[in-house]
Design a binder for these strands. Structure first.
Length: 559
RNA sequence: GCGCCUGUAGCUCAGCUGGAUAGAGCAACGGACUUCUAAUCCGUAGGCCGGGGGUUCGAAUCCCUCCAGGCGCGCCA
């Protein structure tokens, strides 16, 4: 079904052509016809600035052009109530109420698929997110990344992309040894072999817990082993326990991954060696001062970066090169990485890897999620990773619930820092936007229940051409108008990789619904009117449910 | 010093990728429950869109510059 915007666009295009044929316009040339939706109601449902844009080509004042176009408009489908010329030369269009009804029918027909499209044409896209080191539990910042990444994946998938969600596990490298050492030292403490606990070791109590569980599992075996072997054993044990914890926390947050990709596997499979060798042959990697450098500066980075240190060990960057190349080798057309904003300095060098591996710069995209300020009742909550005193994602989810947390994480553009107030997030009042939206769904469910009798829920989804004409209230038309915008919102959200657009759309739709609900009764004495209104609010329910699903938030029938 | 991000109502943020008189929510004030859920609604008030230049019919939006804040600038991850 053609969108309302397209219909208006065609109307104008034909009018311009006709005006030219009738010699009302000197030139048949015209730029792309943009259709906007004015913010102010008195300016119509749609408007176009085409007359202003044509002014130069036509060498005519905008208002004159607008007059010529307007005089040539042929509204054969009778979708318009009226049109007018306003301001410097805008043409405003007012849509007849009746023209909106078919869209309502479409929402019912598509149901859960309303809003989805095939713009992605099945292209493979990978979204990699969270990817926190398995050296400690996830904290709130990771939660925001998880919410953004998961929602982004849902949105892309809704737009017809073949999306894979991946978590890159940094199970190799120095931080893992440090983890092992931390656990080993705590383990020794249990047996009274206390020693200085270094500052750069992981300080949190969870390390002690892991040491304890290791002790109950294997007793004092490690004390007699070679120290490096013992540390290694501790590292593997701890990483696996922590990773399991991460998986559980994410599951409670209703975030799942299609694949957990191990950094160590890149070394085991020689992928790192192979890519380094390739790049050396191409002279993209060169030797200087005993180290191996990647010529990232040739791709827009500030300076070159070391991939193999003087001591022969690779840097994390080396495995990142292999990892990103591998992503494309696995057939992804586009790769999206969700990172914390403090990593923005790495974009250029990873982009360099992508280009050096023979892929286009625009196939790689980074979503930089800014930090979360955790508050309680307006007061900052102390957070320090170093001392191990940070609020974990699990604590937040346990306290405020997954729905509230996810929704709030998506109420900002990801590049905007976010204040997350635990007290507010737990509140079940109008200050908390998640309930505002969910409440719409619950209210409509409740109406449906009442309409159908005591226990059963019957959704009246039958299209009644005659009854639907009774929807004449401005609030009713407003609801339809907003719902018509939903599919475009999803598309824009996907294109711009901005999940928060869905959140704002839902809050606006919810607001319109609550207004309507307070002003008009759905269940009336008039059966036809009731039928039409049930049809309308059921559509609202569908759109709310679909939108919440993209955010990973539930749509409750009762609250 | 260099780079990236941010600066919009008292507070927290939108602003459809250049449009008309800049919008919400919270807080403040005043109203609405005999009603399909008041986790709601209605009304009032609140602004040199950080400052200054430029681009054009038209700028919160694009360019330049300055100011303020955050982050990043390792042979660490």
């Amino acid at each position: 079904m053609e969108s309302m915007k397209n219909k208006i666009q065609n109307l104008i295009q034909k009018a311009i052509e006709k005006a030219y044929n009738n010699k009302l316009l000197p030139s048949c040339e015209f730029p792309e016809i943009e259709i906007e939706e004015p913010k102010i109601e008195s300016q119509g449902d749609f408007s176009t600035n085409i007359a202003m844009k044509m002014s130069k080509i036509q060498k005519m004042p905008p208002r004159k052009i607008a007059e010529a176009i307007v005089s040539a408009i042929e509204d054969s489908e009778q979708i318009l109530e009226k049109h007018e010329i306003a301001g410097p030369g805008f043409i405003n269009f007012f849509i007849r109420n009746e023209s909106w009804y078919p869209f309502l029918k479409k929402i019912h027909e598509k149901g859960n698929d309303y809003g989805s499209s095939n713009i992605g044409q099945g292209k493979k896209v990978q979204v990699e997110f969270v990817s926190a080191n398995p050296t400690g539990p996830l904290h709130v910042g990771h939660g925001r990344g998880a919410a953004v990444g998961d929602s982004m994946a849902n949105i892309l998938s809704c737009c017809g992309y073949d999306v894979q969600k991946e978590y890159y596990v940094n199970d190799s490298g120095r931080q893992i040894r440090t983890l092992g050492l931390s656990v080993f030292l705590r383990y020794r403490e249990i047996f009274g072999q206390a020693s200085d606990f270094p500052k750069d070791c992981y300080q949190g109590d969870y390390i002690k817990d892991i040491a304890k569980s290791l002790q109950t599992e294997i007793g004092r075996d490690l004390l007699d082993q070679n120290e490096e072997d013992a540390i290694d054993r501790c590292a593997k044990y701890a990483a696996s326990i922590i990773l399991d914890g991460i998986k559980t926390d994410l599951l409670d947050f209703r975030v799942t991954f299609d694949r957990w990709y191990s950094e160590q596997s890149l070394f085991d499979s020689q992928k790192v060696d192979i890519i380094l060798k390739e790049l050396k042959e191409k002279n993209i990697i060169y030797e200087k001062d005993g180290a191996n450098w990647f010529k990232t500066s040739a791709y827009g980075d500030e300076k070159d970066r070391v991939v193999i240190r003087e001591n022969g060990l690779t840097t994390y960057f080396a495995s990142d090169i292999a990892y990103h190349k591998d992503k494309f080798l696995r057939g992804f057309d586009r790769v999206i990485d969700v990172w914390g904003a403090d990593h923005h300095g790495y974009i250029q060098r990873i982009a360099a890897c992508v280009e050096a591996s023979g892929y286009r710069r625009d196939q790689f995209h980074v979503i930089l999620v800014h930090l979360v300020n955790l508050l309680r009742g307006g007061e900052p909550v102390a957070m320090s990773t170093r001392s191990g005193e940070f609020v974990t994602l699990k604590e937040v989810v346990d306290e405020v619930g997954s729905d509230a947390a996810r929704f709030i994480f998506l109420t900002r553009h990801y590049e905007s820092p976010l204040d997350f107030d635990l007290e507010l997030a737990a509140k079940k009042t109008n200050e908390n936007p998640v309930y505002y939206v969910q409440y719409v769904h619950a209210r409509i469910s409740s109406i449906g229940k009442k309409a159908a009798g005591e226990d059963t829920i019957i959704h009246n989804r039958e299209w009644d051409e005659r009854a639907i004409q009774l929807l004449q209230e401005p609030e009713e038309i407003q609801l339809i108008r907003q719902m018509v915008r939903y599919p475009e919102t999803v598309l824009t959200s996907a294109e711009m990789m901005e999940p928060h657009r869905i959140t704002f759309f839902l809050m606006n739709l919810a607001s319109s619904f609550h207004t309507y609900y307070n002003k008009h009764k759905v269940l009336t004495e008039d059966p036809d009117l009731t039928k039409a209104r049930l049809y309308l609010v059921d559509a609202v329910k569908t759109v709310i449910r679909n939108g919440l699903a993209l955010l990973g938030v539930s749509a409750p029938d009762k609250m």
